Amino acid sequence: MTLARLFLMMFFSLTMATTGQAQHAEAEDWRLADADQISSDKYLILTVALADRARLSAVTDGIETTFGVPLTAEWPLQSIDVHCLVFDATDVTDVDALMRSMRQDVRIETVQRMQSFEVSAHSYTDTLFPLQWSLDRMDVVEAHAVSTGRGVTIGVVDTAIDQAHADLARQLQDTRDFVAASSAHSAETHGTAIAAVIAADATNGSGIVGVAPDAMLIGLRACWEEDGQPGRCSSFSLARALNFAILNQVAVINLSVGGRFDPLLEDLVLAALNAGIVVVAASGETQEKVFPAAIPGVIAAAGLKSNGIPAPMIDVISAAPGNRHRYVSGSSISAAHVSGVVALLLAARTDLTTFEVTQALQDAVVTSGTAMPMLNACAVLRAVTNTTMSCAQS
């Protein structure tokens, strides 16, 4: 163990013992790598016990020697009390056999391949038409008479949010980059759009209005944009972002991503739910819910009621990097709308449990005329606050 690492571990322990959890809790400065450079499934994620911090270095070195694979990155996930190790198995002929051997090692708790996830959306570049039909369809303006989300913090796990955008500068409480190990990325399209749907500033006299315009956002960059695609994420980057959100006790986590089942991420999502955090995820673009929306307790957001809580997902206007706006579509956008409504709920009723929030949303899905069923923000607020507010669409 290096003296630098020992010093960091002692400093972290003393800080937590004397001050409790900081406003934004940090983990030790362990070895990191750019997440987009270790996203192949030839990289393996292992977890080991976090309790005996003094032995972590020896355990890590021992695993590296025993199995002949180099350590690429490591990071403590204090929220589930494990230390996460990423090993490079690119040169291993039979990765599955290696994983079977690793699972027999008493030092190792779990072993899995690095998984990839995609953000569930696509964008259009049509000329901006300043009409937020989604707010009208969900009776959001009427709901703002009771709540605007003030005091609720939402962790947006996504690509990088444009911190300088006029619709978001006031709402962004903090941003963290769990993709780039060296320097933070400035702005990306998908995360900026999701953040603005949730909480775009309603007081700046320009741009758009968010579903919960007075909610506060923490941008947690766990995904990156490449080759013209909306965004890609990995088990490692998503795990670190979720760990940060749990440690800092955000009220809501928005996960507008989807992919195959991932046991490490499931553990973290369940830890978030057990901590009383409301988790909203995009259900995907098919009839079956994708992971992590399929985890019991997670609020799945979709375009159709049969696949989750229905919310607008087609041609929704939102913010884009460079102080611009554009139309976006996909169940990612549905998730952003639902996260915004959850913030309205929690601001109005701080005592609501995750189960009660889910039930309230389900009860507030209404049909207007011949239109498809849709979540109604006004109906939700009216029910949970026992007010006599008039809702146009219900």
Rank of each mutant, 00 (worst) to 15 (best):
I194N: 09
K289Q: 15
I154T: 01
D126Y: 11
N376D: 15
T370S: 10
N254P: 15
A336S: 14
F261Y: 07
R324E: 12
G151E: 07
V119K: 04
T93P: 01
F261I: 09
R107D: 11
H190T: 08
A195W: 06
H122N: 15
N204W: 08
E356D: 13
L128A: 15
Q115L: 06
Q393F: 08
D105A: 04
V252H: 04
T159Y: 01
D81I: 09
T153K: 04
V278F: 10
D88I: 08
A364H: 06
A239W: 05
R176D: 05
M1R: 13
T350Y: 10
A27C: 10
R324M: 06
L8F: 11
D162P: 00
G68R: 12
T203H: 13
A17S: 13
S234A: 10
R176Y: 05
D91H: 13
R326N: 04
T286H: 05
V141F: 10
A360G: 02
R53P: 00
E356Y: 07
G308A: 08
I161C: 01
N323F: 02
I198D: 02
A160K: 07
A121N: 11
T15C: 04
K289R: 15
G259Y: 00
A320R: 04
G151A: 07
G284R: 06
N376G: 13
V341M: 11
V156S: 02
A49M: 09
G297D: 03
R5E: 14
A97W: 03
P310R: 12
N254G: 11
R349S: 03
A121E: 11
V111A: 14
N307R: 07
T19C: 14
A383I: 05
S186A: 10
P76F: 07
V69T: 13
Q78G: 11
T354E: 13
F291G: 04
A54D: 14
E142V: 08
E28L: 12
I295R: 13
A184P: 05
R240W: 02
A97V: 09
T192K: 01
L3F: 15
A212P: 08
R326W: 11
D36P: 00
A348W: 00
S318I: 14
L345P: 00
V342E: 01
G210M: 02
T175I: 10
R324S: 09
E26L: 09
G231W: 00
F117W: 10
M9G: 07
V328L: 03
G276E: 07
S283W: 05
D52N: 11
